[in-house]
Design a protein around this nucleic acid. Structure first.
Lengths: 217, 217
DNA sequence: TCCCGATGTATCGGCCCGATACATCGTCAC
DNA sequence: GTGACGATGTATCGGGCCGATACATCGGGA
């Protein structure tokens, strides 16, 4: 999961570890706590070993990363061509872990780079997951309420409330996805859903502006 | 964290692993996914090694656990005297992990066996934690909104909403704790209609159980 | 009869976390 | 000047927890 997040961030710009973590914290700060260095650096090592990312010493001439001032031995990571392919694959691949809090948060963060069919699949999968949780909570509150103490019950109620709220939120997003037309790419392949090797990875993937009609008062 | 949960459940009644997991899933099903066996059994082994719990073969005569029918080699775990002490310690001990989703959920589940001072400390700590998260999200939404795409922004908004909601929930619980009320259904009536609030609230901490419920049907 | 789903115990590889160590840079007080 | 301090930066280690997997029994229905 973290692999997808790192690849996605490095596709925006090359970064070193410290900055990567900050970016991770702000972008995934909703359904996910800040990532630990004890996770980040081993993962970077793994990605580098797999060939998805490359490593480059920071030189004085490189001003790719403006906010940083130090010019010591920082290691700047950069996504490779294979890494971009890998990222595209991971974007469309969905497993059970796609629908838990962390996985959903990461995927959602990159929705502007995800095709509409996958977006809908993920939103509906997440909705299903949260609905199952909601039903479980309703079951407990209806059937085993007398077996639980007042505090536990209150916790279940709060959890149920959060589930219902998220389902409504997801419904709204799904409705918007279905109604809002995206230019160009949504035209081909009505059924689709078959993960053919994503083409057009070579030429700067036009991100297909979502315009998800997410207004607020 | 799981240690506290297991000890707490085993203090209600002896159980074997499978049942323990089910109980864990329903009671902590709100802020926590179901526990994995790959976690449960090693933890039980660890607790047994530490002397907090004991192991006993299931015999045909024991009908402690009615819903189970099989009488094969199930291993029933039972809390020891040291385990009870350990549980009492863990109940009042609070660290940073007490205030994350899982830790808070576990502690909250056992609030009916926690003294009021600790309850308040945990509720306020959790509130502080969620408030920090909330402030972080507000910061991002106010300062870096133009740097993020529409989907990421929507995720942040949803996260912010959830934070604000939980803070309000915690405020309500804290208020009730201070006035000596059990967390029952404040939504069904005006708060002012409650009878004279228990004055106590002093430095002494009478256990003040809302509903002990330590027996099993 | 025979298979299937629920019950039940257990292990393994691997992800991820918190704690910790170490080093440099800019800045501000003294 | 200089020394303390916080932010920046890289890295490892032990351990908790997870999903996948294997294996075994039991009750009940095809």
């Amino acid at each position: 999961m973290l692999e997808l997040a790192i690849l996605g961030l490095l596709q925006e710009a090359p970064m070193h570890g410290y900055e990567l973590r900050k970016e991770l914290a702000t972008k995934l700060g909703t359904l996910r706590a800040a990532i630990s260095y004890g996770t980040l650096y081993p993962t970077l090592k793994r990605l580098k070993l797999a060939g998805w990312i490359g490593e480059a010493e920071m030189t004085e001439t490189s001003d790719i990363i403006p906010p940083m001032t130090s010019k010591r031995g920082r290691v700047v990571y950069k996504i490779t061509a294979e890494g971009k392919e890998r990222f595209a694959d991971l974007l469309t691949q969905t497993g059970p872990e796609t629908y838990d809090d962390t996985g959903f948060g990461v995927h959602f963060t990159f929705f502007s780079r995800t095709d509409r069919a996958t977006r809908l699949r993920i939103l509906e999968g997440r909705r299903r997951r949260v609905e199952e949780r909601r039903e479980g909570l309703r079951e407990v509150l209806a059937r085993a309420a007398d077996r639980l103490d007042a505090y536990t019950l209150e916790l279940q109620r709060h959890g149920l409330d959060a589930c219902e709220r998220e389902v409504r939120w997801l419904e709204e997003l799904i409705t918007n996805e279905r109604s809002g037309q995206t230019p160009g790419r949504s035209r081909f392949g009505p059924a689709g859903a078959q993960p053919a090797a994503t083409p057009a990875a070579g030429s700067e993937t036009p991100p297909e502006q979502p315009r998800p009609h997410l207004d607020r008062p």
